[in-house]
Amino acid sequence: MPEEFDAGCARPTGGPVGEDDAPAEKETEEVFKASAREGTMIKVGQKAPDFTAPAYYKGKFAKVKLSEYLGKWVLLCFYPGDFTFV
């Protein structure tokens, strides 16, 4: 569940979980796998790729990890940008 963090001047980022945990010698293979996945649609009936991301949540900055929501239904909504019109 969301865990508060202190925001510095750097823009906090997250990303996919898994690839970074791979041993160094496996790096090329892992990067290849990751890039092969990019741009291709994921499939229904398959696991949602895990990720971490910084979030703004109820007045605080928090770190969110998708896999911490296992056991619950999740609605994940991407959108083009803040202050856009729709």
């Binding site: 980022t13 997250g14 991301a53 979030a55 949540y57 991407f78």
Partner: peptide
């Protein structure tokens, strides 16, 4: 907004979900 608003700078998560517009 009552739920977490996540930031995906660089679109790294969007890319693996196949919805990032390069």
């Amino acid at each position: 907004i009552p739920y977490p608003m996540l930031s995906d700078g660089g679109g790294n998560v969007g890319k693996i979900y196949g919805i990032y517009d390069e």
